[in-house]
Design a protein around this nucleic acid. Structure first.
Lengths: 334, 334
DNA sequence: GTCACACCTGGAACCGGTTCCTTTTCTTCA
DNA sequence: TGAAGAAAAGGAACCGGTTCCAGGTGTGAC
C-alpha cells in the first residue's frame, strides 16, 4: 500500500502540500491539486486511518456497547445506529457485553479508553458509577440508551407509562382480571426496562383499585417464554384471566399462540396486549404500545454528534415517543 | 489522558524501557518493571491504540461486513463472531451493507482498505471481482461466510444439500404434492443461500421423478412472508399441497400458523419442514434441517486467525454441518 | 516604489507508541 | 585474568499522517 509520501513524490510536491491538496484544507493551487489527485488515484492511495487519527486526535469511530442482538428491540436499535453513522461517515465498533464481569471490567478499564472513540453509545446496561467515571475520564461524549444516568445524555421511552397505558386500555374495556406475563425470572435481566413495565402494570391496577387481582407470571421476554407462561396460566379453566399484558410483543405473541392452541378465541374470550409494536405484531393483529427502537438509534447518534460538535455539551434526556396502537386482540370481556 | 512518556518519567526510565516493561518484550529488570507498572497504574495509563497500530502495523481489529441483523441467522452469526473475537481480545468493526451501491462502493474502495484491519469477514454478500481485488490488495486475511469465492477462505452449509434432504424426507414419507415457500421475490435477496435451497428442492423432486408437481411460491424469508404465502396457497381446497417446505424456519413457522388459522391440522393434514433449526423451531415442534450459525461464526474466526498467523495461508473451504431434526410437523399423507 | 496582503509551497515538528542499535555493567567460563 | 556473552537501559529512528511556521511569489493600493 502506498503512503502520502509516495503520492507527494509522484506529483512532485512535498508531503505537506499533498496532505493539503487531498484534505482540501489550506491553500493549494488548482493545478497542483489536480496533479496530486491524479497521482493519488493512480497509486490507489488510501490514507492510513491510524496515522490520521494519531495526528488529528479523532478516530472517526463510535463505540457501541450493547447486549446480544438476538432480540428484535436491540437488532432494530443497532440498525438505527448503523444507518445514522453510515450517513455521517462514521465507523462503528461493536462490543457485546457479557454478564461475566471479567471481560466487562476489562472493556471499561482499558478497551474503551484505549480506543479513543469519538463517542460512545451504551445500550441497555446501567454502567456502575466507577465504570461511568472511567468512561468520562476519556472526555468523550457518551449517550446512554435506557435508564437515566447522571451526567450523561440519554434516550428511552417511558417504560412505566407504556405499561400503564396498555393496562388502562384493558381496564377501560371492562377487564378486571388481567395477568402480566414476563415478570422477573431468576436470571439477570438483559433489559432494565422490563421491571419498569411491571411497575406500570401495577400502578394502573392500583389506580383502578384492583390491585388485589394482580397476577404476575414469570417468563423470559421471548415468544417461547410467553407461550409457556400463557399455556400454564390458561390451562386452568377456573382461574383463567380475561386479559393478558405481555412485557413485550414477543411474549404477547407467544400468549396468543398458546391461546389458539388451547382453543381459546382471541379477543372474544381473551384479550391480549403487548408493548413494542414488533414487526410481527401486525400479522397477529396485536394491540400494542408502539415504539421505534430504530428511531431511538437515530436519536442517540444525533445526541452524540451534537455533543461532539459542541465543546461544552448540554446534557439532554430525551423521551422517545410511544402510543397505543389498537388492532384486533383486545375487546370487552363477555 | 497520560502517555507512555509520562509513565516513563514518573518511573524514572526512558520511553523505550517503559514500553518494554509494559509489553513484556525484551530485557527489563524485575524491579524496574514493577516501578513502571505501578507508575502506569497510578496514572491510569492506557496505550493509545492508534499509536500502537501505527507503530506495529496491527490494528487488533477485525472488520465484519454483513446484511442487517434482523434475521435470526445473521444475529446468531454475529453473536458467534463476537464471542470468538472477544476471547481472542480482538475488536470488531461492523459494517452493514446497504444495497445502494454508492455507499457500498465507498466501503470497498476506501473504508475497508484505509482501516487496515487485521482481517475481514464478509457475510452473505458475494463481493464482485473488483471488490475482491480491492480487498486483497490490502493483503489482509479474508474469510467469506457463504458462497465459495475464489482465492478466499469460506465457510457455509451446503444449502443445496440441506433443501434436498428436507425434500427427500417428505418424499420418503410418501408426499408427492410438495410446495416450496420462499421463492425469489422481486426484491434483491439479502442471502445468496435462498436460491440454492430452491435448487435443492428441485433436485430432489427431479430425482424422484415428480418435477412436474413442483410448486414454488414467492415469499420473503420471514414469518409474515411464510404466513401470507401459505394463506394464499392453502386457501384453495382443491389444489392444496400435502406438504410444505419453507426456505427457512421463519417461513415454515409462518406457514404453520396460517394452517392452524385455517383449521388445517399439522401434521395430519399438512406436513411442514423448515431449514435452520431456529430458536423457535422447538416451540412449534418443527421438523427441520439443523445448522448452527453461531458455530459458523466461530469457525470463521478460527479460519481468519489461522491465516493471520501463517504468512502464506492455506485457503480452506469449510462445509458446516447440517442434519435432519425430526420433530412433529411431518408425517405420511393421508 | 513600497507596503500590505493574499496565495502557494516546503521544512520540520508533532501525535504516541515500538524497535533497532549502542553502551554499560555484570556473570561466567576457559 | 581476560574474553565472551547475557542482562539492562537509553538514544534515536520510524510508522504515516497533519499542521505550524517561514519564505517566496504576485497583485493592488497608496
Amino acid at each position: 500500500m502506498s503512503t502520502i509520501a509516495d503520492v507527494a513524490s509522484r506529483a512532485g510536491v512535498s508531503k505537506a502540500t499533498a496532505s493539503r491538496a487531498l484534505s482540501g484544507r489550506g491553500y493549494v493551487a488548482e493545478t497542483t491539486r489536480a496533479r496530486v489527485a491524479s497521482a493519488a488515484s493512480e497509486l490507489a492511495y488510501v490514507a492510513h486511518s491510524s496515522a490520521t487519527s494519531l495526528a488529528t486526535g479523532r478516530t472517526h469511530t463510535v463505540g457501541l456497547v450493547m447486549p446480544p442482538v438476538n432480540r428484535w428491540f436491540f437488532a432494530e436499535l443497532l440498525a438505527g445506529v448503523q444507518e445514522s453513522l453510515l450517513a455521517l461517515d462514521y465507523d462503528l465498533a461493536l462490543y457485546g457485553v457479557p454478564e461475566g464481569s471479567a471481560t466487562r471490567e476489562r472493556l471499561f478499564e482499558s478497551v474503551l479508553p484505549g480506543r479513543r472513540f469519538d463517542g460512545i453509545i451504551a445500550v441497555g446496561i446501567q454502567p456502575s458509577a466507577h465504570e461511568l467515571e472511567r468512561l468520562q475520564r476519556t472526555e468523550r461524549p457518551l449517550v446512554i440508551l435506557g435508564p437515566y444516568g447522571e451526567g450523561t445524555s440519554a434516550v428511552s421511552i417511558d417504560d412505566v407509562a407504556a405499561a400503564r397505558i396498555a393496562t388502562e386500555h384493558l381496564i377501560e374495556l371492562g377487564h378486571t382480571n388481567i395477568a402480566f406475563i414476563g415478570g422477573p425470572t431468576g436470571e439477570a435481566p438483559e433489559s432494565f426496562g422490563d421491571e419498569r413495565r411491571l411497575c406500570g402494570y401495577q400502578d394502573a391496577l392500583a389506580a383502578a383499585g384492583i390491585s388485589a387481582k394482580a397476577r404476575v407470571v414469570a417468563a423470559a421476554p421471548t415468544m417461547p417464554g410467553g407461550y409457556a407462561a400463557a399455556a400454564g396460566l390458561l390451562g386452568d379453566r377456573r382461574h383463567r384471566p380475561t386479559a393478558i399484558i405481555g412485557v413485550c410483543d414477543e411474549a404477547a405473541i407467544g400468549a396468543i399462540i398458546a391461546a389458539r392452541r388451547l382453543g381459546i378465541a382471541v379477543p372474544t374470550e381473551l384479550s391480549v396486549v403487548g408493548i413494542d409494536d414488533h414487526e410481527h405484531a401486525e400479522m397477529f393483529a396485536l394491540t400494542t404500545i408502539g415504539q421505534s427502537p430504530r428511531e431511538q438509534g437515530h436519536e442517540a447518534v444525533r445526541l452524540l454528534t451534537k455533543q461532539m460538535e459542541q465543546p461544552d455539551p448540554i446534557l439532554e434526556h430525551l423521551a422517545a415517543e410511544s402510543a397505543l396502537v389498537v388492532r384486533n386482540t383486545t375487546t370487552a370481556p363477555r
